[in-house]
Design a protein around this nucleic acid. Structure first.
Lengths: 301, 301
DNA sequence: AGAATAGTGTCTATGAGACATTATTAT
DNA sequence: ATAATAATGTCTCATAGACACTATTCT
């Protein structure tokens, strides 16, 4: 149900009473927030947008950008787009429109464990965003300190820190910078889990959807597209086979008829340029290399 | 963020003030509910569990079972399992444990348009459940009138009724039974959309996950498994090819070494029985028949 | 007996992946 | 000149799907 009513009213005035009881202030409060896992490619490695927390709990830790859903004013998608625009520091509507128009935004999942925020029960709707290279977030905006971080620098173990949920609120006294000693960065709340789920999602999505193009400018080359796959999957792909395969999937890319101005940085011919086609699903899919390990019956002669 | 704070405090007492401002009663209220798209197979056709609304809005309409998240008490998954147990009328914990233990439950998506419930802003976390044949919901429980409905009887057009979201709240005055004249059943709120999303999900999931087995009892035959695929996809499959393919996917099914007691209803040999294997992903996948329609370059000679 | 079904065998088209090869460009 | 790279060609293996066939069981 939307707002459900377990015991339905039995009479007309009981019904009135029932409706009156809908005042949510009578219930224990739940907050609804929207968090965004915004991914982009920088220097051929996957980066995620994080903000540094300026207040406890988890003060000094990095966290996913996000904020409260504005009750009665916006849908979840709108809230996610708004938060992202705010945190990336694209203030003017026109600039935001230009830079974010090619942005892909999709719902990732919702996280609602009662103890995930020590202050109160917070239900967070997580979104996943893919963007072509965005500028560094500008200081002086809503984001106290927002920055792109290489995903490989982060600690994504099941519960980042010492059990994220029940983590001590006095974290801000000790290692304030979100690092556990010399190790990788840890994230606030259950954000490591959310980010891990987002990475799983994007890795899977590249197989059957053309969304790799969302990480690139409007025009791109096949080798650039391959770099996206390699960065997201963390594996080198066979250039020749990848090239032929991409061109064989109907609607994946469309030729522009032109090439790049210069060859590769280390030599090689100019590459032809393409832009995204109209396919929304890849047929056939670009399957991830089978890092099998299945041993596939090596016992048989 | 979990509960985010855009403008971080600048001083110690400002911080205190900031934390005090966290009282969610100061914000416009948002309700959080959990809805369940519970699917099962009956007589080889897909059925969904619905409850009849006893109160406005959408009084008399059918809706997905669901209810409020209990603040501070339960996670989203727990709330979904609880609602499902309540609405299916499996009251005793032991019975619920027995009947629901084989239940598959996964998060489907979250719906939060401000106007989706005319009373207030309600954010609903939708879950998808697959179950082997469950008994008819018992009257006299929480569910005023809960019943399994054939999915094919429902109107799943983009916005079920007259634009679900802005639908008039006085619906209970007119066509009270959830039908628009002689047509198929329409659902309350945006539940037609949620159900449609759930159907998309289950159709896709059968391809690459072994979840078809969640619709069947512990032991099953390959033809029974095929019936699940045919019901969900709405297409007849080639019995011979399906059989060989299922057995060729490692970890999908495991032989029990026995067969059914009797042959098919209309003749044929006894079928061997299997139970679900330990694979969580199918490799290779069971791809849906390509209802291509791509015309596949009919212009060439 | 006749009909329907479980399970297996065979053949073909297609796609994935391993190389190999040619042409083009930067250093 | 040398090295690196874009793009294409060729070959092999695995899988999907069409079809045929046998064996078993119900009416």
């Amino acid at each position: 149900m939307a707002a459900d009513d377990q015991p339905p009213p039995t009479g007309p005035e009981a019904e009135q009473e029932w409706l009156a009881a809908y005042d949510p202030r009578a219930y224990a409060p739940i907050a609804v927030t929207v968090d965004v896992v915004a991914l982009t490619l920088r220097h051929d490695s996957l980066h995620v947008l994080l903000v540094e927390r300026g207040a406890p709990p988890y003060q000094g830790c990095w966290a996913l950008p996000g904020g409260f859903l504005r009750a009665g004013e916006e849908d979840l998608d709108e809230a996610a787009a708004r938060e992202l625009a705010e945190e990336t520091g694209l203030r003017s509507a026109s600039e935001a429109e230009v830079r974010l128009c090619r942005l892909h935004l999709e719902q990732l999942g919702t996280y609602g464990a009662p103890e995930r925020d020590p202050r109160m029960h917070v239900v967070s709707v997580a979104y996943l965003a893919f963007a072509p290279d965005l500028p560094d977030p500008q200081a002086g905006t809503d984001a106290a300190a927002a920055a792109w971080h290489p995903v490989s620098d982060l600690d994504l173990r099941p519960c980042g820190r010492s059990r994220a949920a029940g983590a001590p609120a006095d974290t801000h006294g000790g290692g304030v910078d979100g690092r556990t000693g010399p190790g990788p960065l840890t994230l606030a709340f259950d954000h490591a889990r959310i980010l891990a789920d987002g990475l799983d999602r994007v890795r899977a999505k590249l197989e059957y959807s053309p969304l790799a193009t969302a990480f690139l400018p409007y025009d791109f080359t096949i080798p650039e597209l391959r770099a996206v796959y390699e960065a997201v999957w963390g594996e080198k792909l066979h250039p020749g086979n990848f090239h032929r395969k991409v061109l064989s999937v109907p609607g994946f890319v469309e030729s522009t008829g032109t090439t790049t101005e210069r060859g590769g940085a280390r030599g090689g011919p100019r590459a032809r340029t393409y832009h995204a086609g109209d396919a929304r699903l890849l047929h056939p899919a670009l399957l991830r290399p089978t890092r099998d390990g299945t041993a596939d019956d090596p016992g048989a002669p």
